[in-house]
Nucleic acid binder design. Structure first.
Lengths: 115, 115
DNA sequence: GACGAATATTCGTTCATGCGAATATATTGC
DNA sequence: GCAATATATTCGCATGAACGAATATTCGTC
């Protein structure tokens, strides 16, 4: 994944928030949508953009789709994701997103599935 | 300088090469143009883009304009520029650009000005 | 003043991007 | 089979970006 490709993926606020959230672990579309508070179609469109460029991968779990960052990113991507993660610590918007994620519950289980 | 703004500046190949070169020190437009081997107007347009967004600053020296990265970047920008510099070490295109820069002479002095 | 060199800007064209609206598709439970 | 839920995709629109061509501006020298 080239440097330009990495920056293309991150130069939009919605995609940046998605990738920031995914640095904390895989997430499903409905959780991403709940945290970002944007229309579902927009989340899907940006996920498709990221998927097309190899920034995220996905796997199905029933009707849910779980998105995650690459397990084996190249050196450049790993380096930039680490850098982004460092910077996100002081990013107010990201901290707010994290609080929302914690409030929702980030185990990506269907509501009511717990026993 | 926001993260998105940083990525917007770097998500184009010409601007990326410009910033990569500037991580090694200030440069004038004619040196940048000689290394990048693109039309002068294009270099100027991308420099204007970067300048408008605070990614570079410039000062005149006679008819020459010397461009440089911010002396006091914010934490995010500093972090990303360091990351970019790390990644550039293994970037073939950047190494080629550096060789050209060395061949040209990177002191930004007018030709024949040496004594 | 004119001229040359260096550089910036404007304009028009083309294309990518981001969006919303609408709709299509996949899966599960009944 | 249908309904509900989750998600993806398509279409059209508006805007910004990237570019080349042409030109304007600035500075130093004469």
């Amino acid at each position: 994944m080239s440097l330009v490709r990495i920056y293309e993926c991150l130069c939009d606020e919605t995609r940046l928030r998605i990738v920031q959230l995914l640095t904390r672990g895989p997430l499903c579309v409905c959780h991403l949508q709940a945290v970002l508070e944007v229309p579902q179609a927009r989340v899907s469109q940006h996920l498709a953009y990221l998927r097309d460029r190899g920034m995220v991968g996905c796997r199905r779990r029933g009707t849910w789709m779980i998105y995650s960052l690459p397990e084996k990113p190249g050196a450049e991507l790993a380096s930039h994701l680490a850098c982004l993660q460092d910077c996100s610590v002081s990013d107010k918007r990201f901290r707010a997103d994290l609080r929302k994620l914690k409030a929702i519950g980030s185990d990506c289980a269907p509501a009511g599935a717990t026993t």
